[in-house]
C-alpha cells in the first residue's frame, strides 16, 4: 500500500496560518492517530488529504487516483433518506448495479448492527446510531484511504469500544491507510499503530509514538498501555509553551 507524503504544505484561513511548511509521512496499511488539542489544524489536514480543500502551497503525494472514505465530525446523513438509502447514495457509481449496491449496504449495516433499522430516517435514530450509519457508509464505499475525524465524539464508553472494534475488524480485512483524529488518548492507544502528537496552530509535530502491541492484546496489557499513555501525555517543551499561550 502506497504511503502519503506531505511536503511543506501551507494553508491559511483569513489571517490564521493553520499549516506552515508542514511535512509528514504516513505509511500505508497502518492506523495513524492524529492526536492534539482542538483547533490545532488536524481537521484541516484531513480536508487537504481528502481534496475538499486545496493547499495554498506544497504538495501531497500518494492521494492521486485513490478513493477516500471520510467519517466527518458530524454524521452528514441525508435527512430525507433512509439509513439504507444513505449508504446506497455513495455506492452510486462504484457498484455496477442496484442489486450489488443493496448487497454491500446490507453487509455493512449488519457489521455495525443496524440491519433492523434500514428503513429508518436519521431523525428517528440516536446520535450514536447515526454515527454508526456514517461509519457503515465509509466502510461500504471501501475507500483506499479511510479518514476519521473524531468519530466517537460524545459517545459513551461501551459504544465507543464497540465502534472501535468495528473499525479494527474492517481495517484488518481491507487494510486501507487509516488516519484518525482524536483528542482522547485512550482511543489512540486502543486503535493506532502510530500516534502522531501535534500542537498548533500552525500545525506542528511534537512527538511520534509507535505502538508495537497487536490490537487484540492491548486490553490484556494494561501496564504497558499505561506506560505508553504516560509517554504520550508527558509534557513536552513545545507543547507546554503552546498550552501556556492558550490559557
Amino acid at each position: 500500500m502506497q504511503k502519503i507524503r506531505i511536503n511543506s504544505l501551507n494553508k491559511k484561513f483569513q489571517n490564521l496560518e493553520v499549516l506552515k511548511d508542514f511535512s509528514i509521512e504516513f505509511s500505508g496499511d497502518k492506523i495513524h492517530c492524529l492526536f492534539g488539542p482542538s483547533g490545532c489544524g488536524k481537521t484541516t489536514l484531513l480536508q487537504l488529504i481528502s481534496g475538499l480543500t486545496a493547499p495554498d502551497r506544497g504538495t501531497i503525494n500518494g492521494i492521486a487516483g485513490r478513493s477516500v472514505s471520510y467519517v466527518f465530525q458530524e454524521d452528514r446523513l441525508l435527512p430525507w433518506a433512509t439509513v439504507k438509502e444513505n449508504i446506497m447514495f455513495v455506492l452510486d457509481h462504484k457498484a455496477t448495479n442496484k442489486q450489488k449496491a443493496e448487497q454491500i449496504s446490507e453487509k455493512y449495516l449488519a457489521l455495525v448492527g443496524l440491519s433492523q433499522f434500514r428503513h429508518y430516517f436519521p431523525d428517528q435514530l440516536s446520535g450514536g446510531m447515526k454515527q454508526r450509519v456514517a461509519i457503515a457508509r465509509a466502510f461500504a464505499y471501501q475507500g483506499d484511504i479511510l479518514l476519521l475525524d473524531e468519530p466517537f465524539k460524545g459517545l459513551d464508553y461501551e459504544l465507543k469500544k464497540c465502534l472501535m472494534d468495528y473499525i479494527l475488524a474492517y481495517w484488518r480485512r481491507h487494510k486501507p491507510l487509516c488516519l484518525f483524529v482524536t483528542h482522547d488518548p485512550d482511543e489512540g492507544l486502543y486503535l493506532a499503530d502510530t500516534i502522531h502528537v501535534f500542537s498548533g496552530p500552525p500545525l506542528g509535530l511534537t512527538k511520534q509514538l509507535v505502538i508495537n502491541i497487536p490490537h487484540q492484546e492491548r486490553l490484556d496489557k494494561p501496564a504497558e498501555i499505561a506506560e505508553l499513555k504516560r509517554t504520550l501525555l508527558a509534557p513536552n517543551k513545545a507543547m507546554t509553551e503552546q498550552t501556556k499561550s492558550r490559557c
Partner: peptide, 10 residues
C-alpha cells in the same frame, strides 16, 4: 452534505 457527496465522488 455537498462536501460529503464530493468526497464520495457522487
Amino acid at each position: 452534505l455537498l462536501e460529503m457527496a464530493q468526497v464520495y465522488r457522487v
